[in-house]
Design a protein around this nucleic acid. Structure first.
Length: 323
DNA sequence: GTACAGGCAGTAT
DNA sequence: ATACTGCCTGTA
């Protein structure tokens, strides 16, 4: 599944920072207890303990998937070397970073937030998560997803704490719309149901989506009710290995309009687009999305998604947001 | 009360 | 093709 680690930091986990990566808004179901993070990854509960800040690492009855020096990685059930998969340690981070060396803001953000990385999510969970993400805020998304897990997931006790795995597509597809709605999904109920149904009847096949090129995979996703441009790009970037995806939410639109205005100065029609925008609080139209997306992806290149993550995090920090 | 939050689909131009 | 509008829900 994962390539062997070949870059210079292959055995040095200090170059990525789980704390900042988990907290950068791309993931929803991770919680910190003590010096450990616990994350829901489909049917798994992942745990990492940063023993750099503590002298004692608590031994427990769960299988140690991997123990690599300063940060210890566990999972239940066992999932050996999940950190390589989830934290994308198979990416050539030096090549990725150097591809942005001409861009001041991304380069600054890379050195300003050391250890921030993209994370690779479980695809079904990622699809449902972002199907819940339209027109709401991150706290609400977390709540909806936690509700889905506690109602329909499996309970696993770790370190005397209860965790609930993410409900499978089969399970969600069997659940009635009324039951789903009780999780606080509102009108997103239909979207979640559509995702679950598409996976169960195989009109969405994760294996083939992984193999398809970006555009084709995106077109498949867009056929699902509740999945539009932004949600599709999030799914492609965060779970289907399409690093050229560049999700544009309201925050990224602000970044593009404020910090990358010059990108749109070439053509007159794009000038109008910018001038007509009152300020950066309007919702993004489909037309706008297409133009912004093309410009950004042409400019940032095949690792656009990484640039997006740094710019997004920087914009949120700049605004003093704490999720 | 009412504005707002990591968009989207349906409908009208 | 592009623009306009309503929408679940909880919080400020």
């Amino acid at each position: 599944m994962s390539k062997p680690l070949s870059h210079p930091y292959a055995n040095d986990y200090s170059y990525f920072n789980p704390e900042i990566s988990i907290n950068s808004g791309q993931m929803f179901l991770w919680e910190k207890h003590g010096s450990s993070w616990y994350g829901i990854y489909g049917e798994y509960v992942l745990k990492l303990t940063d023993s750099r800040s503590t002298t004692l690492v608590k031994k427990n009855e769960h299988k140690i998937a991997h123990d690599n020096g300063e940060i210890k990685f566990f999972s239940f059930p066992p999932y050996p070397y999940w950190e390589r998969q989830v934290f994308r340690l198979d990416d050539d981070i030096d090549e990725i970073f150097s591809s942005f060396s001409n861009d001041v803001l991304v380069s600054e953000s890379i050195s300003k937030y050391p250890g921030l990385r993209l994370m690779r999510q479980e695809p079904h969970q990622c699809m449902v998560s972002f199907a819940c993400a339209s027109n709401t805020n991150i706290l609400m998304i977390r709540r909806m997803l936690k509700n889905l897990c506690t109602r329909f997931g499996n309970k696993i006790t770790i370190d005397n704490m209860k965790f609930f795995t993410f409900p499978s597509a089969e399970r969600l597809n069997r659940v009635s719309n009324e039951e789903l709605r009780l999780c606080g999904l509102g009108y997103r109920t239909k979207a979640v149901k559509a995702v679950a149904e598409a996976i169960v009847n195989d009109s969405l096949n994760i294996h083939s989506l992984l193999r398809l090129p970006y555009d084709d995979a995106k077109n498949e996703l867009l056929k699902i009710h509740g999945i539009g441009n932004k949600v599709a790009d999030c799914i492609l970037l965060f779970s289907l290995d399409k690093l050229e995806a560049f999700p544009i939410d309201i925050w990224m639109a602000r970044v593009l309009y404020l910090d990358y205005r010059w990108l749109f100065n070439n053509s007159n029609s794009n000038e109008n687009l910018i001038r007509n925008r009152k300020l950066s609080y309007e919702k993004i139209t489909a037309h706008e999305y297409r133009i912004l997306s093309k410009k950004a992806r042409d400019y940032f290149g095949k690792y656009s998604g990484y640039a997006q993550q740094y710019l997004f995090y920087n914009a949120r920090q700049r605004a003093g947001k704490k999720w």
